[in-house]
Simulated assay, not measured.
Amino acid sequence: MDFTVENILIPADHPCFDGHFPGHPIFPAVAQLDLVLDHLQRILDQSLTLSEVRKAKFPAPILPGTRVHLSLKVQDHTAFWKIFADDKIYSQGMVQFIKSLL
């Protein structure tokens, strides 16, 4: 299954920018993985847990107020993701997930 979520705003007032990094805020890798997980859960309509990050690259920083798109390709319990805008790739990789027990 292939999905694209368009025009995701990374709000300038997101709490992660407070400490990452003062004076030069960027959207942390862990927040990007959380964005991927959040959209996987919405698309698959179930509670999930990331069990493994198999591959991850973060070639460009996401700054406060940036609008991005998220591309997801889901196969079994694996998701390939790409966060991008226009011709710029902010991050991409592969994660494995399991259905949450809670």
Rank of each mutant, 00 (worst) to 15 (best):
74 V>C: 06
98 I>K: 11
83 I>S: 02
47 S>E: 08
38 D>N: 13
16 C>R: 05
83 I>P: 05
12 A>S: 15
37 L>E: 07
25 P>R: 05
71 S>C: 04
101 L>M: 08
19 G>S: 11
45 D>N: 14
48 L>W: 01
43 I>E: 01
94 M>E: 14
22 P>F: 13
49 T>Q: 13
6 E>N: 14
31 A>W: 00
93 G>I: 08
100 S>Y: 07
86 D>W: 05
30 V>S: 14
16 C>Y: 08
79 A>I: 04
41 Q>E: 15
24 H>R: 12
95 V>E: 00
58 F>M: 02
54 R>D: 08
65 G>V: 09
7 N>P: 10
63 L>V: 06
32 Q>L: 10
53 V>D: 00
39 H>L: 07
43 I>C: 04
41 Q>W: 06
101 L>D: 07
99 K>D: 11
2 D>V: 09
89 I>S: 07
8 I>E: 12
70 L>V: 08
99 K>A: 14
65 G>S: 10
41 Q>I: 10
8 I>L: 15
64 P>V: 05
61 P>C: 07
23 G>F: 11
41 Q>R: 12
5 V>Q: 08
4 T>G: 05
40 L>V: 10
49 T>Y: 08
55 K>N: 02
55 K>I: 05
63 L>C: 09
28 P>D: 05
94 M>G: 01
79 A>M: 02
50 L>Q: 03
